[in-house]
Simulated scan of single mutants.
Amino acid sequence: MNIAYWIAAGFLSLFYLYAGTMKLIHSRDQLRPMMAWVDRMPLPAVRALGIVEILGATGLILPPLTSVVASLAPAAAIGFVSLQIGAVAVHLTIGDRRITLNLALLATAAVTIWLATGL
């Protein structure tokens, strides 16, 4: 089960580190082709979301790796489940039905919660 956690958490961490970094360093025009919803949110909110994603990715990896406050790992995964529920809602609200990636991330985060409780 430990190996499965590291695979799931590693995938989520890499994805959210990349996505969060993109939200922090790119302009709205650069983000628009990848994220159609950026025009509906203030840029500071997009930047804040990037920070949350980077912190969550760190929370999945560092606590179990260092054995310091390991309970942060399931909390980070719960945060990602909540984030993806919100993301699906935003996509559906703006009429964007391309939510397959969001549902896959939600499912992976949910499995990661379960795996993290066994660490």
Rank of each mutant, 00 (worst) to 15 (best):
V111P: 14
L103I: 07
A45E: 09
A57K: 03
S71D: 09
M35H: 11
I51K: 11
M34L: 12
A110D: 07
A87W: 01
A110L: 12
L17F: 15
L62Q: 02
Y16F: 14
I54Y: 15
F15K: 09
I54N: 10
L72G: 02
L14S: 08
L55F: 14
V46S: 02
R40D: 13
A110K: 04
L31I: 01
G50C: 01
F80N: 00
Y5R: 00
A73V: 01
L92V: 10
A116Q: 13
D39S: 09
T112L: 05
S82T: 06
L55N: 01
L105N: 07
D39T: 08
G10A: 03
T93R: 08
M34P: 05
P63N: 00
A107S: 08
P74Y: 03
W6A: 02
V38Q: 13
R97S: 12
P44I: 01
D29G: 08
A109K: 08
S13A: 09
A9L: 07
Y5Q: 01
I54C: 12
F15H: 12
L43N: 08
R97F: 09
F15T: 13
T117A: 14
T66F: 14
L43V: 06
G10N: 03
I3V: 11
R32Y: 10
S13I: 04
I113V: 15
I7Y: 14
L12K: 02
L101G: 10
H91G: 05
L43H: 11
I25R: 15
A104Y: 11
F80R: 01
L49D: 10
A76N: 04
I61K: 03
I78P: 03
T93F: 06
I99N: 05
A116C: 11
A73F: 04
L12M: 08
I54L: 11
V38R: 13
G86D: 00
T66V: 03
A76C: 01
D29Q: 14
M1I: 07
V111M: 15
T58Y: 15
T58E: 10
H91M: 06
R28M: 11
T117Y: 12
M22R: 13
P74T: 00
Y18Q: 13
A104M: 12
I54R: 08
A9D: 14
V88A: 07
L31D: 04
I113L: 04
L72P: 00
